[in-house]
Amino acid sequence: MPASPLGRPQRFGRLLALFLTCLAALATGLTAQPAAAAPAAPTRVMLLGDSITGNNGCWRALLWQHLQSTGYTGVDFVGTQRNPWCEGEFDIDNEGHGGFLATGIANNNQLPGWLSATDPDIVLMMLGTNDVWSHLPPSTILGAYTTLLGQMRAQNPDVKLVVAQIPPMDPAGCGDCAQGVVALNNAIPGWADAHSTERSPITVVDQWTGFSTATDTTDGVHPNDTTGIRKLESRWYPALTAALDGAGPGPGPDPVPTACKVAVTTNSWNSGLTASLTITNTGTAPVDGWSLGFTLPSGQTLTNGWNATYSSRSGAVTATNAAYNGRIAPGVGVSIGYQATHTGTPAVPTAFTLNGAPCAVA
């Protein structure tokens, strides 16, 4: 006998039961998946400066490309300026303003608006060139630095500041600019040490040592596109990656090791002397651009020198390569020298550094 047809209520009940069974099976067969993690926000880096950062700042392109090629891809250069005229692809945003002074930015209260528009986590600041050009003393320039730092921390209490000792400059018509840069740069580390905190550290980057106005600039101030921008980038990169990696406050990355030795010979008389120094590259790689640091003994005053540019006349001295001897091949030496007066002490310097790294004394 054929089965009796199901009534409407029975058919509905069967369908509902089948639906519930399938739903339960589906729920049982599914494994709970963890929620996908939101991608980490990029670290926002402001490159703050004047024309050396802005219009002439193709070191920015090199820095961006270096970061990308070494795995630092979660970086966002930020700024209200966009200068794309450099070779290769890069993040063009920056805060480089041609002709601006640190004191002008501070006095005109310009930085807060730029910070509000970009909210950086890290600021790379290279300011002071135009202030020195305007014959302002280091104390005035550092006062502007302090104002700018306070504005950065008001925007972001955890901001990290990477501040440059500015490159040397020797523009036409500014006889005191070279020494003005030295005076400012000598004061920057002490300022940074006094204002750095654990929450908002300050790192100092030496953009002066090894940089030559004769061979690395187009006009005694602005870096050229051959050696100049590459030297600037090579100093920014380790300092920025240290900040990206969470490094705390400090004087910045250690100098790139340079294997070297210095031999000194002197000829002295009752009130004067000459010293001849031979700097030898004892490493396996060439040195491209160099600065030799040493301290004159007490009572000595340098009166002239040759084959290098000398930063000061007494005390701590830095001799920077001339246009024709900036490259020292492995195993090769270059000779420089100076004449000095003395007050009865014709001794020679006893310690030397080449590009910040200590040399052996022959």
Rank of each mutant, 00 (worst) to 15 (best):
T309H: 15
A360V: 15
W64K: 00
V205D: 00
S335Q: 12
P39F: 05
A360Q: 15
H135N: 15
L232Q: 02
F12S: 14
M46E: 00
V334S: 10
V159L: 05
L23S: 06
T350Y: 06
I92N: 13
V264W: 01
V317C: 00
W133P: 01
R327K: 12
I52D: 02
W133A: 08
F211L: 02
T309E: 15
P42K: 07
G333S: 07
A25H: 10
W306N: 11
D216S: 03
A35M: 11
R8Q: 13
D193E: 15
S291V: 05
G289A: 11
G29Y: 07
T203D: 03
D121E: 03
A38F: 07
N109T: 12
A357M: 03
T197Y: 08
H342S: 02
V181F: 02
N130P: 05
R14I: 09
G49M: 10
T350A: 14
N267C: 03
V123I: 10
G248I: 00
W114R: 11
G228Q: 00
S200A: 14
S200W: 09
G326C: 07
V75W: 00
D254I: 02
G272P: 01
V332Q: 15
T303H: 04
T70R: 04
V75S: 05
T146N: 05
Q339D: 07
T53P: 09
A340M: 11
N156D: 09
I336G: 08
N321M: 06
R60G: 03
G333C: 13
E95K: 13
